[in-house]
Design a protein around this nucleic acid. Sequence first.
DNA 1: AACCTCACCGATACTACTCTCGGCGAAATC
DNA 2: GATTTCGCCGAGAGTAGTATCGGTGAGGTT
Lengths: 230, 230
Amino acid sequence: MPRKRALATPLTRQESKRRTRARLLEAARQMILAGDESRLSAKAVATRAGVGGATFYEHFRNLQDLLRPLADELFDDLREALRKRRREALAAPRNEERLREQFRTPLEILAASPGVFRLALRVRHNSVSALGESSRKLAGNTRGDLVGEFVDRGYPARTADERRRLEMIADIHIAATEALALGHLSGRYPDVDELVDMLVLVTRGTRLAREWRGAAGAPALRQDREASGS
Amino acid sequence: MPRKRALATPLTRQESKRRTRARLLEAARQMILAGDESRLSAKAVATRAGVGGATFYEHFRNLQDLLRPLADELFDDLREALRKRRREALAAPRNEERLREQFRTPLEILAASPGVFRLALRVRHNSVSALGESSRKLAGNTRGDLVGEFVDRGYPARTADERRRLEMIADIHIAATEALALGHLSGRYPDVDELVDMLVLVTRGTRLAREWRGAAGAPALRQDREASGS
DNA sequence: AACCTCACCGATACTACTCTCGGCGAAATC
DNA sequence: GATTTCGCCGAGAGTAGTATCGGTGAGGTT
């Protein structure tokens, strides 16, 4: 009873609605990735999608209602890509070349989707709009993913102090990677290998945190001084 | 011939206008630092400043016209604070404790002006609005300042490659400092000393870049491999 | 005192958006 | 084939901001 003919040109209502919705989402996605989401509006999305202004509201209650799932989708894709590659890298035998690979991958992924990457940076500190929320969720998840990885690699994470420290290391690595990826995108740092070099150097430093302290207070490092020559 | 009496209660026109302008600027400043500059508008600023809507346009051609000098002022203050303290630190004899001081200062300055700091992060990647432009100028200047410092400290900067490398190190340090400062502000990293520890560790790594290469190509580090334990 | 200047402002024309309403027409149902 | 459903849409009421204009009154000038 549901279907009679389904091979001909005329669309079913369900399919038709699905497509219109998809077109609205796609239009919004393009506009967002094209930069400047400030001039995003229900009207503009509808127009770009080639549908009437009122149709927008047949599919979404308002702009935020469209943005929430869209933002989740955009950022989840990015996170999944990053996560997947990291997991692969983790499974493989570890040596210096592997480590470089592990740093190169996120740089390449970020460089390969400059739209989403820039979007994430742009909206991260904006409290309003579902985009900001979703971007922060991505950042938090990425940090969590990284910390999990550190633990797998043998960094200590028994006490709250140790875990917080791992979060800091993760934050630093994320920030460094993002900063360098941004420089790469802006053309200042064309050579990705060179960026990897720098990230490896950073790791050389933060890796010291591993054998750093079992239970002592903070001053372990401060004791261990070394005058840096001019 | 200009002045006759200037001691009484009535304001001169000039003074009156100056004050109104200052009130507009102050209103805008507060609204911006209070977060959410998206709902900033000429009208809103005027209302908050307690003046009529038309008065705004007696002082500024439009909102951007007000934002430009305001943004410069906001960020220049921050930059000057950072720069000044860094210069002091640079002049002093260098040892490990000094280095820590040098890292603690920017963290404290950023933590002390969370409004401007968050503002800078928020608008940095927004191409529109004078705020974004000014924030990027701040970031670029800070990077330049840091590079200059590195050179003073003996990092090589003869070739374009070496200079670019210093820029990367500066970018990483800025990004790491900002990321940790943000974590501090959000309550995740309450102890500033601990943040300084982490920054010192990062330096341990990036410092390796100094004795790294005189004229060779990039692979110097890649050669120097070392299998990282589990 | 008479006159001029101008900082301020209410009113307003314009623009741009949000969301609803009534209805058209084709798919779905009988 | 007749009837119902519903995806779509043009029109429009409501809201909000921009920028201008003419006028008012107190500072400033003679």
